[in-house]
């Protein structure tokens, strides 16, 4: 046990060392370059302070950008869950419907969600544009993982309940739902990752002036590279935090599972 602890401390120390080395190297290169395109770590800290206290060139503060992106992703993601999970469950339980209409659903799956952005710009306005793009992006991983996991539910468990005379609803509630949950949540995590990527693209291309994606793009237009990096770090942080949240919920729900997949 003591050995383990020492090992952990050593790994942590090495991590600090690597991080420090990278920061020092970065600073040195930035000083040596003296280029306006190359912000030092110190510039970025100043940029962060500016973003928190004063805001960007138009006066939008960091939290406002983050909040807008977060609200857009949450709304689209929630809509995708609302349609994707029941839809996947239904089509999983009635595999014939899916098998016979695949040709309508499958091709759409292979269109990159970002390719929907121009369509959304033409057909929708404002907030709904973003929600739609996020919805398209997160729908398929959730829908497909729900559908396939329903199909793969261990027949033994279903039969156990059936032999005991359980009703269909009971089987869905007590057997199918718990056994598909892990892969549904897995699908949700993939969706969330794609959503964060799509919101950045949508905000850069769509018209509204607020949102982390837009912050990054407009800072780049005026070569405020420090603010660009602040935006990138912020989006990374929010993405990481929401991913951790799902992992936390996953661990809470699946204490019965032998191992939780960690990636």
């Amino acid at each position: 046990m003591t050995n383990n602890y020492a090992e952990k401390m050593k790994t942590m120390g090495l991590n600090f060392f690597t991080l420090a080395m990278v920061l020092v190297l970065w600073t040195l290169i930035a000083y040596w370059q003296k280029s306006p395109f190359f912000a030092t770590p110190y510039d970025i800290v100043l940029g962060f302070v500016q973003m928190v206290t004063v805001g960007d060139v138009e006066g939008y503060r960091l939290w406002s950008h983050m909040l807008h992106s977060l609200v857009r992703v949450s709304a689209g993601f929630a809509a995708a869950c609302l349609v994707g999970i029941p839809g996947g469950l239904l089509l999983g339980l009635y595999p014939k419907i899916y098998d016979r209409t695949r040709i309508l659903v499958e091709p759409i799956r292979f269109i990159s969600p970002i390719a929907w952005i121009p369509m959304a710009i033409v057909l929708l306005v404002g907030f709904s544009r973003y929600i739609f793009v996020i919805w398209v992006a997160s729908f398929f991983p959730i829908f497909v993982s729900t559908l396939w996991s329903v199909r793969q539910v261990n027949a033994v468990y279903v039969n156990v309940a059936r032999v005991a005379g359980a009703s269909r609803l009971f089987i869905i509630r007590k057997i199918i739902f718990p056994s598909i949950l892990p892969s549904v949540i897995g699908g949700m995590r993939i969706s969330l990752g794609i959503s964060w990527m799509c919101i950045v693209a949508a905000e850069m291309i769509g018209g509204q002036m607020v949102g982390i994606g837009r912050l990054i793009l407009k800072s780049a237009m005026v070569t405020r590279m420090d603010l660009v990096v602040v935006g990138m770090i912020s989006i990374g942080f929010v993405g990481y935090a929401t991913n951790e949240l799902i992992i936390f919920i996953e661990k809470r729900i699946f204490r019965w599972r032998a191992a939780v997949s960690i990636e």
Partner: peptide
């Protein structure tokens, strides 16, 4: 494994920045 475990502090944050967020930086550089 030690190499990865000791450089996680640099690799992991980059992993969570969506690649699309790099586009403006790349346009400039």
């Amino acid at each position: 494994p030690r190499v990865y475990d000791s450089t996680k502090s640099v690799i992991e944050p980059i992993r969570f920045i969506p690649p699309v967020a790099w586009i403006p930086l790349v346009i400039v550089l």
